[in-house]
Design a protein around this nucleic acid. Sequence first.
DNA 1: TCAGGCATCCAAAGCGCTTTGAAGTGATTC
DNA 2: GAATCACTTCAAAGCGCTTTGGATGCCTGA
Lengths: 340, 340
Amino acid sequence: MNLRELSKRLNLSQTTVSRALNGYPEVNEETRKRVTAAAAEFNYRPNIRARTLATGRSMSIGHIIPFSKQNEMVNIVFADFIAGAGEIYAQHGYSMSLSLVRDEDELSAYRGVADKGAVDGIIVHSPARDDPRIAFLADLDIPFLVHGRASEVTTPYSWLDVNNKRAIETGTRHLLDLGHRRIGLINGEERMDFAQRRRDGYLAALSAAGIAPDSALMRSGEMSEPYGHLATQEMLDSATPPTAFVASSIVSALGIRRALHERGLVMGRDISVLCFDDEISYLPNGKTRPVFTAVHSSVRAAGRRCAELLIDQIAHPDHKIRTELWDAELAIGASTGPCP
Amino acid sequence: MNLRELSKRLNLSQTTVSRALNGYPEVNEETRKRVTAAAAEFNYRPNIRARTLATGRSMSIGHIIPFSKQNEMVNIVFADFIAGAGEIYAQHGYSMSLSLVRDEDELSAYRGVADKGAVDGIIVHSPARDDPRIAFLADLDIPFLVHGRASEVTTPYSWLDVNNKRAIETGTRHLLDLGHRRIGLINGEERMDFAQRRRDGYLAALSAAGIAPDSALMRSGEMSEPYGHLATQEMLDSATPPTAFVASSIVSALGIRRALHERGLVMGRDISVLCFDDEISYLPNGKTRPVFTAVHSSVRAAGRRCAELLIDQIAHPDHKIRTELWDAELAIGASTGPCP
DNA sequence: TCAGGCATCCAAAGCGCTTTGAAGTGATTC
DNA sequence: GAATCACTTCAAAGCGCTTTGGATGCCTGA
């Protein structure tokens, strides 16, 4: 049952039926009732593909999600970001189209996203510092927005990011204020822009306190529980172990906690732990009394806001670039205390 | 630059240009070269919307992901499932379209998925026991496959599921074999089909060992770290605390571990913990020596297989229903030991 | 010489919608 | 009585591709 068929049965033109169903004003109320009744009776549902071609808009937003072949990991925060963005999309009648693209894949692998007309806009996740996707998309002349930034990219582009540097700088200063002098950093992979910025924040805080960085205290790798565990073990085994840790993710922090427990160390007393907390829904840090002292910023809220910004950008292609920098907040939890 | 424009410049018909670009045999090699060269030169990319309308296939698979308003959670395993499915889709030229649908939303909220022509097939996630989506989709007459099952639904449908009952039954028996008699169950929400089946497995194992179930030892709720923590605390505070726990997820198991540590209890010695492990990429349980004794089954592999089954179903709409039941494997880790 | 076959290419008809521009009603106004 | 207007409705032209059902020319073999 398509529009032509339906309009024939109603003895009306396709125009009228289409307008009746889409709520246009120039159609008699009585006619509209007849039409909607018939549509329901014959179980008519418009073909979205045809509509999409006729209107020139696909009402769909693409998400490009990198995932590394190496560790077969999708970024931890992704599910919550999507949940936030999905909420906004639903409100505006958009749907969401995903492409998981391996690190090593060609840019041409953005099938279903970069294809002309497949989506009305694109959100880019977890950019690397010199992410080639950004120039590629700018060239494609399609609205897009980056969650995060790519410091080495010179093309202008829209983005929303957390002030990662300031966040970790603040967190590290908190540990310094507690008297810690040897602070371990367990970071994400530093080709990722956010990881680089977090390291910068860590270094800035040390430097402000007049402490020389020690490369033995800085690790970067996948943000998984076992990596946090491993890195902690190794640092604690050194001759001059750290008295505190800064973790780039609450997931790595879980690994730190496990390593400390195994050695009978009490978190917040013997060793302090501070982490960046994206407020992942199934790993909440506790509202009133956080388990981990953390700088936190809701990735779900970021998803919502990115969706809003992109939709706005699609609606008004005139003023192009928009950027937003969010500050993370420090919340003191049970995992930090004065340097013993 | 569209097909017509391009064919004009080449002094060829649209037919020939289209065929040249899509690799049909009935076009001169020389002409094909000219065409591909011109396509590259003018940066021609076919409009996917038009193709989709002309071919009648959207080359896109929809995923319906429920998420509960209540706890604002997207199922933990979702990201890895998607990563697996996405791999297969990429191989077959499909893209992936997501709809996050709130529990309380009407079925009509499946915009962009149930819309006619938007997708060629659908994967349904985390079905409830009487999930209304299944009958709805069967009615829509579109290929779909359920990851999991819905016991109370009578309409036949395709599915892939883990044998949740047997898995937890096996796990529970392992604890019983170690001498445990009071075993706590920390389950997911039991309107979810898998949670119900896991409870069934737990009860079956107890019953086989001649142990009467104790409702004080059975909890169900969101599969988050804090819930695991809370449930454990409460059970340990009872007059007759359990000596072992069965957790429905590795995430709840993390909460159990935290609660035990807080009380100075050693996991695997004082209290045993067994969990169901979906092999989430950033919470791996350890290959050689698992942290948790667990019944495990890869949700990423499930994603891959679901994608394969659905694509096959789309290609051969004739033999309709296909089902697959996977067995989870028990792997002994460090978290279980003889009842003290 | 001509039928038949092969290799290329093409015109045109969709796919199922939206939207433009125009036209058909009565009712109202001058 | 003609002109104007608001309200409805419609025919038809796209949107940009794929695909059907021929054409066209050239070569082969009888």
